[in-house]
Design a protein around this nucleic acid. Sequence first.
DNA 1: CCAAAAGTGTTGAAGTTACACCCATGC
DNA 2: GCATGGGTGTAACTTCAACACTTTTGG
Lengths: 256, 256
Amino acid sequence: MEEIRKRRDEMMMKRGLNPHISIDCVIFGFDFEQLNVLVIRRGVDKSKKKSRMALPGDLIYDDENLDEAADRILNELTGLKGVFLEQVGAFGDPDRIKTDDDQEWLRSIRKKPEARVVTVAYYSLLPMDNCKLLASSFALSAEWKPLKEINELAFDHLDILKDSYSKLRAKLATHPIGFNLLPEKFTLGQLHKLYEAILEKDIDKRNFRRKILKLDILTQLEEKQTGVAHKPSRFVKFNEKNYKKLSETGFDNFSF
Amino acid sequence: MEEIRKRRDEMMMKRGLNPHISIDCVIFGFDFEQLNVLVIRRGVDKSKKKSRMALPGDLIYDDENLDEAADRILNELTGLKGVFLEQVGAFGDPDRIKTDDDQEWLRSIRKKPEARVVTVAYYSLLPMDNCKLLASSFALSAEWKPLKEINELAFDHLDILKDSYSKLRAKLATHPIGFNLLPEKFTLGQLHKLYEAILEKDIDKRNFRRKILKLDILTQLEEKQTGVAHKPSRFVKFNEKNYKKLSETGFDNFSF
DNA sequence: CCAAAAGTGTTGAAGTTACACCCATGC
DNA sequence: GCATGGGTGTAACTTCAACACTTTTGG
């Protein structure tokens, strides 16, 4: 703990941490069954009761903009670069630091633990497979947790998570972003399950396939699944060009 | 100028201005012809060249949350309370203060003009009629300007405006929010023009009316227009209950 | 042979688009 | 009487929702 603070203090000297603005990231991953969120252990475990987990986040540096800071946090934690990342918004209730536990945690990592901090939340979609979970300057450890099982988080992180999730669902209704949660090659069945998991409802298989295919953003590959105990599915990947275009325009609807 | 700073300094003593976070508001109004935006004059007119205009905005107080701060700014400027207000997001490029002009303005109103400030942007929709334009602690004067004629603004306010506008359009495609720009009683023709103005395209009159009416959020009134040189239109107003419900759920579409 | 997911079409209902004329009013 | 926007219906087309069976593989 003392170590962490020391290292951070050194960093601050060099680069200029801004103690008033932080970034928190809601990192979504899909394990082909359900939606998961990356949460960190803070490690204030003094009194043996398990401390609440938190969203990964950090203060920003004075020489980086908000998107860059979010990118940095994501990269420190997962080793990934250039993944889907979108701002959710700013959260800044004066009383967002609620519990003693939270306060203790802040004292352990911040120079001015009592200062009001406004946090800017981002959500990110990434393929869970080629993603390591690294300890980092702001997290003792990190782990994936099913979205449905997350009932409490430190600070106002549960609010942030809820907002992020509803933003994800809204965006999914107008933009083909779900793909960001899957590996490069995937099957329509996986995509189908992904939509069902995010939207929390059953979707008719035939209608789903028709609708997705009509978007014309997928290229069918020759390669098939192996080692599955059922008829193997053909893999698909993006048609990058069409996908980009559609990602920008979206397929809005009350459209006239 | 000196006056303004003095008054603000007093306020800060009492209440605690947070010099690191500001709020900027994009206030949209509709004059039955086109979309307008409320911009303020900053009044740094020393060198006689007209200074650029800006979005209304202010630092936040330490005891108010972000939504409250936005509400306060809006209320100071227009006298209105409880109007439609939605967060756009945080903007915080380290170099958002671009010109000498901007820097001079900051020196005139802020204690620490060189500090990095992250701003949280909101957009607001309000009926232009019962809205006064008041000078306020952060604006010498305010005026409506057609959106289309705004080609430059101070700081990064033009970026904020663009983002707000596209957020407005996206939201309009899924939620019946356009009504917030109209007075309590309005005609379908006015609403039609409003949609055309925001979406920047012609919309077939009959299809528009059918689609809007099918939402079942309007109540037809007996009262008709007077003093118009054509067949007078019946006024309509909301069915509050249905409107609320639809505002929350939206009428999304890629929906399965 | 059994379990498990892949893959495939049709039909009826609902929604969308495009389009033209008469009406009520002020001047 | 003329200019202006208000108000109305239909037909062709597209999209959507609901629904069941055969195929391929592993075990």
